[in-house]
Amino acid sequence: MVVYQHAAMPSIEYETPGALSPSAGPLPPLRQPASRTDRVRDALRQAILDGALPPGRALVERELAELYGVSKTPVREALKQLQSTGLVEINAYQGVSVRRPDDKLVRELYTARCAAEPDAVRLAAELHGAAAYPGARRALDEAAALIGSGETQGLGIANRRFHRELYTACDNSFLCGFLDQLQDLTAFVAGLGWRLRATFEEEAAEHTAILEAMEHGDAERAEQLTLAHIRKARRTLSDALGDDK
């Protein structure tokens, strides 16, 4: 077994040269989407959202190409795609690095969510009335299981899936497309906030209240609870990031 390791990167193990181990280290192994670029992007995205690649970590094309057994071209394209989601910053002088969230980013991100997501949730409740949202319920149960086990690494993804199950029910492609663009960055910022100040149990209770309002077809309450939830998360994150300075 060969172990590739560099001081600037977490290690990852391969069973044989060029073959990825399913039990690799902090960076997840590559899966099998459509292309090498997709594979590198998905692996790096997961590492960033899980905190294996922390804010400010340099992302060097040559090192990543060696790490994942690909040329620099798919790495370069993957980094461009991650830049478009807000997870990566590309600077002409300092190179590529994982984004460093600050209060301005949190304020702008959560203001955008406040402007769109509560309306989408209200529209969904008005459209469907009293109805079940099994996808949201499953995401809520998964989040509760992760919290109960103490394995909260995947919690951000479960929470984002919960929110998406509700707002996509509004059946408005423009609202959904806009909110989808914010998904990765929201998961990234929220995950960083939890590592500084754990609030996921409070958020789980808020999610439960929102889902119950949706299941009862109470559009006004679902909208109000969603808005309050996002505003509270924004304040908590701003405070946590401020404490970390």
Score class of each variant (00 low, 15 high):
179 L>G: 00
120 A>L: 10
13 E>P: 04
211 L>M: 06
218 D>W: 00
88 V>A: 04
12 I>R: 04
90 I>G: 04
93 Y>K: 11
50 D>L: 06
172 N>T: 00
76 R>T: 09
202 E>W: 15
176 C>D: 09
184 D>I: 07
82 L>D: 05
171 D>R: 08
164 R>G: 01
100 R>C: 05
55 P>G: 03
228 A>D: 15
43 A>S: 15
73 T>L: 14
196 L>Q: 11
13 E>S: 13
130 A>E: 05
99 R>W: 02
175 L>D: 02
99 R>K: 07
82 L>K: 07
30 L>W: 00
229 H>F: 12
114 C>R: 15
166 L>A: 02
228 A>F: 10
228 A>K: 13
51 G>C: 03
227 L>D: 08
244 D>F: 14
160 R>D: 15
228 A>I: 09
83 Q>F: 11
110 Y>F: 15
242 G>T: 12
28 P>T: 05
131 A>V: 06
71 S>F: 09
192 L>N: 12
18 G>A: 05
215 E>V: 03
198 A>I: 01
14 Y>T: 09
185 L>D: 02
42 D>R: 09
70 V>H: 07
192 L>H: 14
188 F>P: 02
24 A>F: 03
217 G>C: 07
103 D>E: 12
244 D>L: 14
146 L>T: 01
215 E>L: 05
138 R>A: 15
21 S>M: 06
201 E>A: 14
67 L>D: 01
211 L>V: 05
133 Y>Q: 04
194 W>N: 12
230 I>S: 07
235 R>P: 03
191 G>L: 08
119 D>G: 08
18 G>W: 12
124 A>W: 00
205 A>T: 06
230 I>F: 13
226 T>E: 09
181 Q>I: 00
207 H>A: 11
68 Y>C: 01
176 C>L: 00
83 Q>G: 14
20 L>R: 11
194 W>V: 05
61 E>G: 10
233 A>C: 07
3 V>E: 12
241 L>K: 10
226 T>C: 08
208 T>V: 10
241 L>I: 13
124 A>D: 00
229 H>I: 04
107 R>C: 02
184 D>E: 15
162 F>R: 03
235 R>A: 15
218 D>P: 03
79 L>P: 06
105 L>K: 02
156 G>H: 10
205 A>S: 13
96 V>F: 05
93 Y>G: 02
131 A>L: 04
92 A>P: 02
228 A>N: 09
31 R>L: 12
95 G>Q: 04
39 R>Y: 06
21 S>V: 04
1 M>A: 13
107 R>I: 03
79 L>R: 07
131 A>I: 03
88 V>T: 07
140 L>N: 06
63 E>H: 10
48 I>A: 02
237 L>F: 13
57 R>H: 06
44 L>P: 10
97 S>N: 00
26 P>E: 12
158 A>E: 03
19 A>N: 01
199 T>C: 14
76 R>D: 13
190 A>N: 08
90 I>R: 13
54 P>S: 03
215 E>Q: 13
65 A>N: 10
102 D>P: 05
53 L>S: 09
185 L>E: 13
58 A>P: 01
41 R>E: 15
94 Q>I: 01
173 S>I: 09
89 E>M: 07
206 E>L: 08
